[in-house]
């Protein structure tokens, strides 16, 4: 079964067209990356799949559930990490993980989710401090832990390593890879072309609301006779 199937998706904000008929698929156990410049439509596409925005036209299904009709079912199997996400500042890191885990399970399932979140966030004793006292990087680690602890069938990650230093970014990439090995599908967006090349099984280059090219990193580099994805992207949008 396809994890995500997007067909001719159009999203308008009033009379402004943010996404102009894009189509792509994400397979089970695959990391699929949307890459493009600011304002290309990456976040809008991710928000549509994450059930946050309505569809103007086209269709989106997640593990066979159709949006927006079955949005409730989709929310049970996805986890979304927005680029500029925050956590409730008056809660401690652990309380925040508890709060989220309660929506996904009870008893042992709940406990194991929180334990996994603690491990992913890896904040040591600081997990018992209020989120208000965390640095940007610590908050991001907590949020990555929150997003992946629930073992989602589809993780939607908008700039997952945004705000993290090199060491933590590498750790997050490792965690994302291990989630996929455990059976999850990942749809992510990034400005960081190197990261995408390292992490994603397949990539779609998006510009001005349209997908201009898609394939594996090797296929795209070959198609555009480029040394890296960044160069391929620049050639693709010319």
């Amino acid at each position: 079964m396809k994890a995500v199937e997007v067909r001719e998706l159009v999203k308008d904000y009033g009379n402004f067209r943010a996404i102009n008929g894009i189509s792509f698929e994400v397979k089970e156990g695959e990391i699929f990356g949307l890459i493009g410049p600011n304002g290309a439509g990456k976040t809008t596409a991710l928000r549509v799949v994450a059930t946050l925005l309505q569809i103007t036209s086209g269709s989106v299904t997640v593990f066979g559930y159709e949006l927006p009709k079955e949005a409730g079912e989709v929310r049970k199997i996805i986890s979304y990490l927005p680029e500029e996400a925050g956590a409730y500042k008056n809660l401690t890191g652990k309380e925040y993980l508890n709060f989220i885990a309660k929506f996904f399970g009870e008893g042992e399932k709940f406990q194991s989710m929180v334990q996994r979140g603690l491990e992913i966030a890896n904040l040591g004793e600081r997990i018992n401090d209020k989120v208000d006292t965390y640095s940007k990087g610590m908050t991001r680690l907590l949020l990555v832990g929150r997003a992946l602890m629930v073992n989602p069938r589809l993780a939607i990650l908008d700039e997952p390593t945004s705000g993290l230093d090199v060491v933590n970014a590498q750790e997050v990439r490792r965690i994302i890879n291990s989630s996929v090995e455990a059976g999850a599908a990942v749809l992510l967006s990034s400005h960081n072309m190197l990261e995408v090349e390292l992490l994603c099984h397949r990539i779609a280059l998006i510009n001005d609301g349209k997908i201009v090219a898609s394939g594996t990193a090797a296929e795209l580099k070959k198609e555009y006779d480029a040394g890296n994805i960044e160069e391929a992207f620049v050639k693709a949008i010319k």
Partner: peptide
């Protein structure tokens, strides 16, 4: 302001 709304709206809750 704290950017928590998007997460809240994607949780499995009515």
């Amino acid at each position: 302001e704290n950017k928590t709304l998007e997460t809240l709206l994607t949780l499995p809750v009515r």
